[in-house]
């Protein structure tokens, strides 16, 4: 039964015409960046590992951003299209419905990550970076992706409009991305320092550097990822809480 829902989510969000346009736009972005690495003089002087790190940052940022936009639509969209009631009336439990949607959402992210692989392959040629990129993308960074997917789905469940849930997810993503816009000096103290220390996105970038450049061990990477794991737990807790709140009032 749940397979039917996952199948529907895949058709609706992963292989729909809208999704294909999104994939197209994403590849255009990836292509622009990859081409700049071989054509813009400043970027072409970068070490190969730096090139791949920069590309990884963009892949992560874009894929998560698009995923949360799709996730914010999943429940709120069903509510707006008035299809939610029929789903809730099916023999599937609310938790199963949410799980089906989460799987669909993660598959959407997976497709975007797959689209980035040919670029990584080209940019990491002659080095062992491609394998590292695979490990980082699908193992180290996966908790971050699940966390953001769960968060956007949670907002989509609580808020009845797609606009509100998309906006809230987007703002939260931007808040976690604040440290990226700040200088090193600013990140060393005050509020920026706190955000930098706890931001899952910022910590993932630190992990990226420690893994790609500093080649630090598993233990250090785990310490780096601690805020990401906490973020994942909190996001899933929010999703479970939101899941119990799914309801339709009389006459709604």
């Amino acid at each position: 039964m749940i397979a039917a829902l996952i199948g529907k989510e895949i058709k609706e969000n992963v292989f729909s015409k809208k999704s294909l346009w999104i994939y197209f736009a994403v590849t255009l972005l990836f292509s622009g960046l990859a081409l700049s690495f071989v054509s813009v003089k400043e970027l072409s002087l970068l070490a190969q590992v730096e090139v791949n790190m920069t590309f990884m940052k963009v892949v992560l940022g874009i894929s998560i951003l698009v995923t949360i936009i799709i996730g914010s639509n999943m429940y709120a969209g069903e509510r707006e299209r008035e299809t939610l009631e029929s789903l809730l009336l099916s023999p599937l439990s609310k938790a199963q419905i949410t799980f089906g949607k989460l799987v669909g959402l993660l598959l959407f992210w997976f497709i975007i990550s797959l689209l980035s692989l040919p670029y990584f392959f080209a940019l990491s040629m002659g080095t062992d970076i491609f394998v590292k990129a695979l490990v980082f993308l699908y193992l180290i960074c996966f908790p971050l992706v699940i966390g953001f997917a769960a968060l956007s789905l949670g907002f989509s469940t609580i808020l009845s409009s797609t606009k509100s849930s998309t906006l809230l997810s987007f703002i939260l993503f931007l808040v976690t991305a604040i440290p990226m816009f700040l200088s090193t000096a600013m990140k060393k103290s005050g509020f920026a320092h706190i955000v930098d220390t706890v931001s899952p996105l910022s910590r993932s970038m630190l992990t990226l550097k420690d893994y790609f450049v500093n080649r630090l061990g598993f233990a250090v990477l785990m310490v780096d990822l601690l805020p990401v794991i906490i973020f994942l737990i909190l996001s899933i807790a929010l999703l479970l809480f939101a899941n119990n709140k799914i309801t339709l009032k009389g006459g709604e």
């Binding site: 529907k8 609706e12 069903e78 299209r81 008035e82 299809t83 029929s86 009336l89 099916s90 023999p91």
Partner: peptide
């Protein structure tokens, strides 16, 4: 739920 069927008033479709 397996025993009943419901057609809600505002019923959307895919």
């Amino acid at each position: 739920r397996k025993m009943i069927g419901v057609l809600p008033e505002s019923h959307g479709y895919y």
